[in-house]
Design a binder for these strands. Structure first.
Length: 692
DNA sequence: GAGCACTGC
């Protein structure tokens, strides 16, 4: 077995000879730098031991702190140890797209191979892998989809689930599924004499990597699996607490920001806040208070970052502050794991987060401000120690920290399960209540999702997958209710319109409304608005942008078109990233339905058929106006209000269907279209037969 | 008459 260094050197020499554009000298020094860096990673010293552990154990839990190098190095160790022989792959799953991409690029560079050769990544809309790929980074959602096509994951010798402590829905389903795949693979090896799809079958190795303090949860779940610890490398962060609880954490954050600015050494500040509104108001308050300082003390630059912020504005936080200035980045959770901002030495953590939860009996989601978990607080403070020693100011007393939950509740316990359950059913897993989840969702949540799937026609009365509808729905990468809408639209002859609609409904925040310019945004988008509702409004945004794009495409270069399109989005207060995402989804699901043999036809100007199709699809979410102008959601009986972002906010039609019911300051329905109340009984008689 | 943590197929 060649040592890692020899293996690296060999491949890189071969590669630099093939590339006439990279002078050998500079490539050598770059290579040396990479080799040096790799040697200094904490994980480098335990390569041999780790490989032995993988060889000895079919399941291994690796607890690695930030900066251990586990994500980039372990797959290379496995490659060098022969785990990719005979065309086998090592698959590494990540919760986020951005991580899959950046890590794959980094590892390709370390191996001195072109991305997509030995090392590649596969994420939705972007697959760089080829037949020679051996180390494949992907999102956990992508790996789940692969399991749907190849239930034994026969091309992999090892699957690594990274960031398992984050406990996303996809990770939790994957953890359970991989347990089953491993069992099934071993069985296949015994039964068919070791031949699997023409290849020699071998058991699947499973590695669960987590940054949590506690490997016990995973170890116990896998029957007492072996757990090893790999040291991390972080700079020390001093934690400070307040003496007393703060009644107004926004004000406390402001005070802390200025204390740091006026009293601490150079270094940027990162403040964790709960949402756009809060961030925008703190941004304004920082500006205001700066005006009261002497001019030489005003060199503090507030910058906002949150998911709905257009990319150009997001980019600003990554640029270094102007000479002499200190940045104060006001961020949501996005800065906790998803992005890393350079230059941060101080973290201000009020200790709150906006968290989604789900009430299955009412079919209602809510978004509440709740205290963070200990793990979250730790993750936040760690953000101050990426580049040097840092300080973290927690805006609550130390005794409050002790009272926090150890970790955040797994997402699977606080979301709608209809999609998860449909996927499991499609995988042939029928007993959902008895399914071996690491954390079981509540029975009522499972029952509610089964009921919804039955009403949508995805499951039979005895909860088996309905053929072909259930199969078709499971194949589409959409919320089941949107998949059903496409199947119905095929019958209503408005598939083209519905493809656009569900693509637009599948992305978050198509519109960008900065707090100060809300009226301006509303006026400039007014020409899209349809009196029938939000669905038709989305349709016209998509179509208008598409026409605009197609016209410009003929006359301009691609880069120019992007720029012009960016301007169009900005003028219309449309989020260009979201619109692009919707276009990608449209293209993908159009391909999917065409593969299913659907003919993509348009209803043209017959929008009545389209609205009837919306009613037939979303009948489970209908609401009726009451005498007092509020609405009653028919399914749950809840009294609800039209969300102010809806184009129907003012007109208040008698009867509507909607897509989302969410409680924030009130119970709001979002994304609605006006319907004739009689349609419900006509189009969904199995559900509304008793309605008058 | 008034508002939108994050990720993913």
């Amino acid at each position: 077995m060649p040592s890692m260094t020899q293996g690296e050197l060999k491949s890189s020499v071969l590669n630099s000879n093939q590339n006439p554009n990279s002078p050998v000298a500079s490539s050598l020094s770059k290579r040396q730098k990479i080799a040096e860096h790799k040697k200094t990673l904490p994980i480098a010293s335990v390569e041999k031991r780790l490989i032995e552990e993988v060889q000895k154990n079919d399941i291994l839990i690796i607890v690695g702190e930030t900066g251990s190098g586990k994500t980039t190095q372990l797959p290379q160790f496995l490659f060098n140890a022969g785990f990719c022989r005979e065309g086998k792959m090592v698959g590494i799953s990540q919760p986020r797209r951005i991580a899959a991409v950046t890590v794959a690029k980094r590892v390709a560079e370390e191996c001195d191979v072109q991305l997509g050769q030995r090392v590649g990544y596969s994420i939705r809309f972007d697959d760089t892998t080829s037949s020679s790929t051996r180390l494949k980074y992907m999102t956990d959602g992508f790996l789940l989809r692969e399991a749907l096509v190849d239930p034994l994951l026969s091309r992999y010798s090892v699957i690594i689930v990274d960031e398992a402590h984050e406990r996303t829905v996809h990770t939790d389903v994957l953890l359970a599924l991989l347990k089953k795949v491993q069992r099934d693979r071993s069985k296949a090896v015994d039964e068919i004499g070791g031949v699997l799809k023409g290849r020699k079958a071998s058991p699947l190795k499973l590695i669960i990597m987590s940054a949590s303090l506690d490997a016990r949860v995973f170890s116990e779940y896998y029957g007492g699996a072996r757990a090893v610890h790999v040291q991390g490398r972080q700079f020390p962060v001093d934690i400070f607490y307040t003496v007393h609880p703060e009644s107004d954490y926004v004000d406390a954050a402001l005070v802390t920001i200025f204390q740091i600015h006026l009293g601490e050494k150079e270094g940027d500040i990162l403040v964790f806040l709960t949402g756009q509104d809060e961030i925008e108001s703190v941004e304004r308050l920082v500006q205001e208070r700066l005006q009261h300082l002497p001019e030489d003390k005003r060199k503090l630059l507030p910058l906002a970052i949150f998911s709905a912020l257009p990319s150009e504005k997001q980019m600003r936080v990554f640029a270094p502050a102007p000479i002499g200035f200190r940045k104060v980045v006001l961020a949501t959770n996005i800065a906790e794991t998803s992005i890393t901002i350079p230059g941060i030495r101080y973290v201000v953590d009020p200790g709150f987060v906006k968290a989604r939860s789900y009430n299955p009996s009412k079919g209602m989601e809510s978004l509440d401000v709740v205290p963070t978990s200990k793990a979250q607080a730790l993750q936040r403070s760690g953000r101050a120690g990426r580049e040097g020693p840092g300080k973290c100011f927690r805006l609550y007393p130390e005794r409050e920290f002790e009272k926090l939950d150890d970790s955040t509740k797994p997402e699977i316990k606080r979301c709608n399960l209809s999609n998860v359950i449909l996927q499991l059913k499609a995988l042939g897993i029928d007993d959902i209540v008895g399914f071996d989840f690491i954390d079981k969702p509540s029975r009522s949540s499972i029952v509610k999702a089964l009921e919804e799937l039955r009403l949508l026609g995805a499951l039979t009365d005895d909860c088996k997958l309905e053929k072909p509808t259930g199969d078709q729905m499971a194949r589409l990468p959409l919320d089941p209710v949107y998949s059903k809408a496409l199947i119905l639209a095929n019958q209503f002859n408005c598939l083209e319109e519905m493809l656009i609609t569900v693509a637009m409904l599948s992305v978050e925040s198509i519109f960008y409304d900065p707090r100060e310019k809300r009226e301006e945004a509303r006026i400039s988008r007014n020409h899209f608005a349809s009196i029938e509702g939000d669905h038709l409004t989305y349709l016209s945004v998509y179509r208008e942008s598409n026409e605009f794009l197609e016209k410009r495409k003929a006359e301009n270069s691609e880069a120019k078109v992007d720029k012009i399109m960016g301007k169009w989005c900005k003028d219309n207060f449309v989020n260009s990233r979201s619109l692009k995402h919707a276009r990608d989804i449209y293209r993908q699901i159009r391909g999917n339905v065409e593969q299913m043999g659907f003919n993509v036809s348009s209803c043209g100007d017959d929008l009545l058929e389209y609205r009837r199709c919306l009613a037939a699809s979303f009948f489970l979410k209908a609401a009726q106006r009451q005498m007092d102008g509020t609405y009653r959601a028919l399914e749950s009986g809840e009294i609800v209000h039209i969300h102010p972002t809806s184009v129907l906010f003012r007109s208040k039609p008698e009867s509507v269907i909607f897509n989302e019911l969410m409680q924030t300051s009130k119970k709001y329905i979002k994304n609605l279209t006006r319907i004739d109340p009689l349609w419900l009984a006509e189009l969904a008689p199995h559900h509304y037969k008793t309605e008058e």
